[in-house]
Write a protein that binds this DNA or RNA. Structure first.
Lengths: 208, 208, 208, 208
DNA sequence: AATGAATGAGCGTTCATTCAT
DNA sequence: TATGAATGAACGCTCATTCAT
């Protein structure tokens, strides 16, 4: 039943994972605990279905973005960045993802779901990066997508829903769009592999 | 007693926030629950002390980094990026921060502690950004620091301890160091404020 | 479930208020604590229901007494006095009321329940007093009922179940029946208001 | 140490018996629990000393009252009644006695202390009753004292400190003084033994 | 499908008590 | 005398789970 998953998602987002209890979900779904357990014999099953369903929603979002082929690769990269950053400021996303990240540290299923979601995200970035930088190896392009994806997600903690810097969301999106474009267009393979930048030894030398 | 906070931190990092119980902490600290509650009358006090202590540790790390003035601003920016990215791959940091981010959604104290930590992080970045870009307003420089901080933190989910892409940590650090340097050196105020990039309307137009 | 309230009442009466714990009640009701808390989400609810139920029982007793109109007012007053004094010597009443009186000092709900019970008791006395003394104001008649009620209740400590002077219960009932009859028939309004008795200043004068 | 008993008494009176804990007493006495247990190895000892001390205070009060021989027996009876009723309205007495009565149901020591206190109270009433009614047997006079004592104590629940009818305290004292005087002067031995009043069978007959 | 009832474990917390210093 | 530290049991309460109906 979809109502159960909606209820569970709402509890998770609004009250946090520690309060994602069978009772709270049942109450929100206007059911008894007994009946909830008819649909989900145990909490683990419910959690798995919940993660799958929520993540599937985000997957569909990414699929939709990629489809647009009318604009230039550079524009499409920036569209995607703005879309994801815009989404991350919603109550749902700000509520869900930190819970997912924390869960992934101790729950293999959550880690795997998270993994598959971000793979889809990276696959959405992949074609535009490939168009902009056909000279780079697939591995290097994947690393760029990985970095961009992480960079974007990390903004959640600051410009997410009701977070301290929520008001800076627009400027952060501008910076991100510019930064990732410049990065993709400007970086070379040697830099990615650490063969070029002179500053690397610094951290270590000065720490000692 | 420091042993209690160490035990609590270990429980949080290794088992996750939902298992951060008085009994688990007491057991790890080789105490009885009764005695634990002699030191911490309630769980909230313990959690607060724990967050404060752990965050204070990171604050001290940042303070130490900033101190180094021998290298060029560009090198120092890259040193700092590499230091933070290096740290984020440790078991402690990968375990602690996602828990903190999730907690911050529903616990005001956690949100506030998180806030003060990242302010310190941004203040560590501020002087190098100021040296590189004296032409930018303080507000714009702060936005750059905010973006960089978020970008770095977001890598945790991918290259953190035992995370899927942990092996890519070195490459990600290289990309980050390069990307942030290029960003700080290359961006202009109009871009930050969204007065320059032509791609902005795209997302909406194509979504419809 | 009535069994729970019965069990709770028995614990209160036989073991006293400090031992009225959820575990003790559950054990006596042959339940687990978990199941008890299915019926009573918290101890306060249980206590309130318990007080209400027990007090309702006494209210019904009083209602039954008043109904009897065949005997003279004087006889009815004495019937009532003997009934209440007879009841107060039962294990249940001797066990319950001191607990209630003590509780009423620190628990508002208990105070209010106690209040409503004794109001019913006084209303049971009111009509016979009114028949015997139509000349007195309602206020004065209420004061007589208040005094009689208190006088009766106070006997609990001495002639209650297993109390030191339990054997004197019959004589005390005789004295009470006589005393209250004489009081109601003999007192005048001036005495109630303290305008007549000459002894009043004595206490103070001699204490100094 | 007297401070401990004072602290314990204050806790009992202000917070009630269930909150009379070693910790609360220690805190009020500005001690540590450890040090409190130097003076009182266990809670039972403390409770016993507390009951003894408080009750001794009341015993001394009674002893003082009896001493006054200048007034007539009737006046002295009324003086005593007014004194006790006046005292019962104090915070201390209203707080202490219901706790004692409740305790006496399940704690033998409390029952015994209570017993000895009321014996003293009755012994205070005894001489005036004897002076007024030398014709009655000692046993009958003791029964009158017992009834009077119970009657007075029972007023606590209604006109005690912050109790519902506290404002009626003066009128109740007037009624009590009058009632007990009339009782002592008017009753005869046959009535006490139940050989005279015609109303006795009523309660039973009509209840059936 | 749905309810209500029940279990047993675990939660945070409080307590009387003990003891080394 | 006095403290601080420690124990172990009990407290009220919540939880995931089970099951008869």
């Amino acid at each position: 039943m979809a109502e159960i998953l909606t209820a569970a998602r709402d509890v998770l987002i609004e009250e946090g994972y520690p309060r994602l209890t069978m009772r709270n979900v049942a109450e929100r779904a206007k059911m008894t605990v007994g009946n909830l357990s008819y649909y989900y014999a145990n909490k683990e099953d419910l959690l798995h279905d919940l993660l799958e369903a929520v993540i599937q929603g985000y997957v569909e979002d990414f699929d939709r973005i990629v489809a647009n082929k009318e604009r230039s690769p550079e524009e499409r990269l920036q569209d995607m960045v703005r879309f994801v950053i815009g989404d991350l400021a919603t109550k749902e996303t700000t509520g869900f993802f930190p819970a997912l990240w924390a869960l992934a540290n101790h729950d293999d299923f959550a880690a795997q779901e998270m993994s598959s979601l971000y793979q889809v995200e990276r696959e959405a970035f992949a074609p535009v990066i490939a168009e902009l930088r056909p000279d780079l190896s697939k591995k290097d392009r994947d690393l760029l997508a990985l970095f961009i994806s992480g960079s974007i997600e990390g903004q959640t903690m600051f410009i997410g829903h009701k977070r301290e810097k929520a008001a800076a969301g627009g400027a952060i999106a501008n910076i991100a769009a510019h930064s990732f474009t410049a990065l993709v267009k400007g970086i070379d393979a040697a830099t990615i592999r650490g063969l070029k930048e002179a500053s690397k030894p610094g951290a270590k030398k000065l720490a000692s």
